[in-house]
Design a protein around this nucleic acid. Structure first.
Length: 284
DNA sequence: AATATATACAACCGCAATAAG
DNA sequence: CCTTATTGCGGTTGTATATAT
């Protein structure tokens, strides 16, 4: 017993849209609107397409005023910053960019922007400013020091009272008991690793560790990655966490962004420890 | 030139949220 | 309320094109 199909797959076109189909959908919607019912629309418009397919085609491609390609530096920065704040909520991110669809932002992030970040081609000044502005101490407390691994323009120091929460945000961060630093790309030149490319993913529970040199991964503590979770299981020195590709859901301007099961979030969060994010699910 | 591999992105799928009855 | 239909979303896949071998 599977799920009931949303349409009759046998009598419906699939795959790329033909120009005639585009024209039919566009002219129908321009003349009659969507009628508030996508499922019924293809029949009325004389299209042999699934309603969902029509909706997607209209929203992502045919709808007026949508842009394609040519992301600006400013858009890059907005996407990176918002991803840092809310993770992969593509629809919410896209809503902050005029003329961009969630699908396009998602594709752009996955295929290009992530790489640009790693190559240091995207400025994250906005994000770093946001970190500096954090006022609510949340999960990590740390002494205020600077991390010499970062260029002077991006060095930041945090007092425990000014530090909010880390976000992984796909650009990496560095933790040790004394310092905490954000920086997108410098870490890569230090020989740190990108865990997202080791095969860890959000579906398979993995236990990983970083060597003291922070340059290799093996299958033991102290860092455990589980489904959308991150636990630093051992207090130690110079643990470096990078790019888990999970997009932790924290807003480091306002502290905890939102949290569905507050009671389950790390009741015993001590200095130098990251908490288990497993239950820190989000709600708008 | 032929084949393999990588990239880009449109489109699909199924789940969850929401609306309608 | 409960049930069912529809919509919206994000992860993933499929395919055309570009690039490498």
């Amino acid at each position: 017993m599977g799920r009931a199909p949303c349409c009759d797959k046998a009598n419906v076109n699939r795959g790329p849209w033909f120009p005639e189909e585009d024209a039919a959908l566009k002219s129908y919607i321009e003349a009659h609107g969507t009628g508030g019912n996508w499922i019924a629309l293809p029949k009325k418009a004389g299209l042999r397409r699934c309603g969902k397919s029509c909706r997607l085609r209209w929203l992502n491609y045919l709808r007026p005023d949508i842009k394609h390609g040519g992301f600006t530096e400013e858009e890059d920065n907005i996407i990176c910053t918002l991803y840092g704040q809310m993770g992969s909520r593509w629809s919410a991110i896209a809503s902050q960019l005029s003329g961009r669809t969630d699908n396009e932002v998602k594709n752009y992030w996955n295929t290009k922007l992530k790489k640009k970040l790693k190559a240091g081609q995207v400025s994250l000044n906005t994000t770093i400013d946001a970190v500096t502005a954090a006022t609510t101490p949340l999960l990590i407390q740390t002494a205020e020091t600077q991390n010499s691994e970062f260029s002077s323009s991006q060095n930041q120091s945090f007092s425990s009272s000014s530090l909010s929460i880390l976000t992984d945000s796909n650009f990496g961060f560095n933790i040790n008991p004394q310092t905490i630093s954000f920086g997108p790309v410098q870490l890569y030149s230090q020989g740190f690793v990108d865990i997202s490319e080791t095969g860890a993913n959000s579906k398979n529970s993995r236990t990983l560790s970083l060597s003291r040199e922070g340059s290799s991964i093996s299958d033991s503590s102290p860092i455990a990655l589980e489904s959308k979770s991150l636990t630093l299981t051992e207090q130690g020195s110079d643990e470096t966490l990078m790019d888990f590709d999970f997009g932790f859901h924290w807003d480091f301007v306002n502290g905890l962004y939102y949290q569905e099961k507050a009671g389950e979030l790390a009741p015993d969060c001590y200095p130098n420890q990251l908490v288990d994010f497993t239950y820190a699910d989000i709600k708008p």
